[in-house]
Amino acid sequence: GIQEIVAMSPELDTYSITKRVKEVLTDNNLGQRLFGESILGLTQGSVSDLLSRPKPWHKLSLKGREPFVRMQLWLNDPHNVEKLRDMKK
């Protein structure tokens, strides 16, 4: 599951990941809330907090790293936007 992926993950640049996620969401007119609930399993508040103030990787616990790994996996998925759009319906 995701825990193994997080444990094996190389250090991620949390700042550039969140910046990229925000760009993709904005460009495709997708909400942070939808993204947070569907992709990260987080509430709106947690998501906007994460996206606006990402902590550096080395300061995060494994649990804290999980959303960033999920974001990275989502960014790597060529169908990420379509999938999210489908969830919106």
Rank of each mutant, 00 (worst) to 15 (best):
E4F: 05
R20P: 02
V21A: 02
S61R: 02
Q3L: 10
N28D: 02
L75C: 02
K89D: 13
K83H: 06
W57V: 01
G36N: 08
S61T: 11
E37Q: 07
V24I: 14
R85V: 12
N76F: 04
S16V: 12
N76L: 09
G31S: 15
L51N: 02
L40R: 01
R70D: 05
F68T: 00
N28R: 03
M71Y: 00
K89M: 15
S9V: 08
Q3I: 06
V21K: 00
I2Y: 10
R53L: 05
W74F: 12
I2E: 07
L62Q: 15
N28V: 01
I17R: 03
E4L: 04
W74L: 00
W74I: 01
T14A: 01
G1Y: 15
D49V: 09
L42A: 09
V21C: 05
S52L: 11
P56C: 05
P10N: 07
R53A: 07
M87E: 14
I2K: 07
E66H: 00
S9P: 07
K83Y: 06
D27Q: 12
Y15I: 14
I2G: 06
I39Q: 03
L84S: 02
L30C: 05
L62T: 14
Q72K: 12
D27K: 12
D77I: 04
M87P: 11
K89V: 10
L40T: 01
K19E: 12
M71L: 01
G31E: 14
D49W: 07
T26I: 12
G64D: 12
P54D: 00
W57S: 01
L60P: 00
T18S: 11
L42W: 06
N76C: 09
K63C: 05
D13C: 06
H79C: 11
L50T: 06
K83W: 04
K88Y: 06
T18N: 03
P10H: 10
E66V: 07
K83S: 09
D13I: 00
G41D: 07
S38T: 07
E37D: 06
I39V: 14
E37T: 11
R33I: 10
T14P: 04
E82A: 13
P78V: 10
K19M: 12
N76Q: 09
L75K: 02
Q32D: 13
R70M: 06
S16P: 01
P78G: 05
S9H: 15
K89C: 06
D77C: 08
N76T: 07
Q32M: 14
K83A: 08
Y15C: 14
D27R: 15
S61Q: 02
R20L: 04
I2A: 05
L51W: 03
S9E: 09
E66W: 04
K88W: 04
E66K: 06
D27A: 12
V69S: 01
Q44I: 10
K59A: 14
K88C: 05
Q44T: 12
S9I: 07
N28A: 12
K55N: 05
T14H: 02
G36Q: 08
G41K: 11
R53Q: 08
L84Y: 04
L60C: 05
S16N: 15
Q32E: 14
T18F: 01
N29Q: 13
T14E: 00
L40Y: 02
A7R: 14
S46A: 13
G64N: 06
K22Q: 14
E4R: 08
R20H: 07
Q32P: 07
I5D: 12
G45P: 14
G36S: 12
T14F: 03
G36T: 06
L42R: 08
H58T: 06
V81H: 03
N28T: 05
W57P: 00
S46Y: 08
L12D: 02
L30G: 01
Y15N: 14
T18E: 01
E37N: 13
V47F: 15
P56V: 01
H79I: 05
M87Q: 15
W57R: 01
R53D: 15
K22G: 05
V6I: 12
G1F: 11
D13Y: 02
F68V: 02
K19H: 06
H79F: 13
V81T: 07
K59Q: 11
W57D: 00
K55S: 12
S38F: 07
E37V: 07
K59T: 13
R70K: 15
E23A: 10
S52I: 05
K59F: 05
D49F: 10
P67G: 03
L73C: 13
H58N: 10
Q3D: 14
S52F: 06
L30W: 02
E37P: 00
D77A: 04
F35D: 00
E37M: 05
E66M: 07
V81M: 04
I17A: 02
P78W: 03
G31A: 10
K22I: 12
P78K: 07
V21D: 03
L62M: 15
H79D: 13
L75Y: 02
P54K: 02
K59E: 12
E66T: 05
E11G: 10
T14Y: 00
W57Y: 04
M87L: 12
A7I: 08
P78M: 07
G1W: 09
G31D: 15
A7Q: 12
S46N: 10
E4Y: 05
K63L: 07
D13L: 02
D13E: 04
S16L: 12
T18H: 01
Q72I: 04
E82H: 11
G45F: 08
L51Y: 03
E23H: 12
W74N: 01
H79T: 13
